Amino acid sequence: MATSRALAYLESRKNLTGSAGGLLGLVLTFTGVAGPYWPLVVAGLYGAGALIAPPDRPPLPEFPTPSAQLEAVGADFGKLETYLAEVGLPASTQTRLTELTDLLTALLDPGWAAELLAQDPEGVHTLSRIVRQDLPEAVDSFVRTRWWTRLTPGQEPPERHLERQLAALGEEAQRLAAALRDTEAMRQESHTRYLEERGN
């Protein structure tokens, strides 16, 4: 521990700046300016350099990039698909669920869509929330409510709420896909303008 601190100090800005000051003191000594007080001059210049040097900044913590986050969401989506296949949802919800999972698969599929999405941290966050929180919670709450509904018949069927939740999630995913499409369309239009203006 003490050795690592010593090595860290040797490489620090304070030591490097102080050493530069100390070298200046030695130059003054050899030119005869420092006189008999040269040890004090060298030590003083070293100390002054060490004091005025800016402190070393600790390195910033490394966080996963949007691309790495997207890969992690894709892995979690694979787990979610396995869970959805085992739950046994009613047929009335299958169409909406299939539409949603197909869209999520397309967004998470490695390729141009994922590359574009990786440049949009908000989009990655939206997709992550759907996969890791909203969709699992919607299905799990349906499964739990369905069990209680069997004990107390006559209540509103829980699949209606699930259908509405899947519809809302589908719309959110569609908005995300539309935003990505608009980004690509704008890039295409910009390239068209560039080529046309270059020709003039």
Rank of each mutant, 00 (worst) to 15 (best):
E71H: 11
V41D: 08
Y46R: 06
P58C: 00
E81V: 15
D76A: 13
I52P: 00
K79D: 11
T82R: 15
L40K: 05
P58L: 12
G32H: 10
Y37R: 05
P55C: 08
K79L: 15
T82W: 11
W38A: 00
Q69H: 09
L45W: 00
S67Q: 11
G78C: 05
V27A: 04
V33F: 08
E62T: 03
A75T: 12
A50L: 02
P55L: 07
A43S: 08
E71S: 09
I52G: 12
L28A: 02
W38F: 02
L28E: 03
L60I: 05
F77R: 10
A48H: 07
Y46D: 04
L28M: 11
L28H: 05
P36E: 13
V33E: 02
V27N: 00
P61M: 03
V27C: 03
Y83G: 12
G49A: 07
Q69V: 14
A34H: 04
F63A: 14
T31L: 08
A34L: 03
L28R: 10
G35F: 01
V27E: 00
L70H: 05
V33G: 01
E81I: 14
G74Q: 09
I52K: 06
P39T: 03
A34F: 01
E81R: 11
D56C: 07
V73M: 06
P54A: 05
K79A: 04
A43C: 13
P36M: 00
A34Y: 01
S67F: 09
T65A: 06
Y83L: 15
P64S: 12
T29F: 00
P66C: 08
A72F: 15
F63S: 15
A34P: 09
L45T: 03
L80R: 10
F30V: 14
G74D: 09
P66R: 11
Y46N: 05
K79Y: 14
L45A: 00
T65V: 14
V33S: 12
S67R: 12
G32D: 11
G74P: 12
L51W: 12
A50S: 02
G25R: 03
V73P: 10
Y46E: 02
F77E: 08
A75C: 09
L26K: 04
K79I: 11
L51G: 02
T29R: 05
I52Y: 03
E81Q: 15
E62C: 04
E62A: 15
L26R: 07
F63K: 13
G78D: 15
D76N: 13
R57C: 01
A50Y: 00
Y83M: 07
A34G: 03
V42E: 06
P36G: 10
G32F: 05
A53G: 06
E62Q: 13
Y37C: 01
T82F: 15
D56G: 09
G78H: 13
L70Q: 14
V27H: 00
Y46G: 04
L26F: 10
G49C: 01
A50N: 02
G32Q: 01
G47I: 08
F63W: 15
W38M: 00
E71C: 12
G25S: 08
T29I: 12
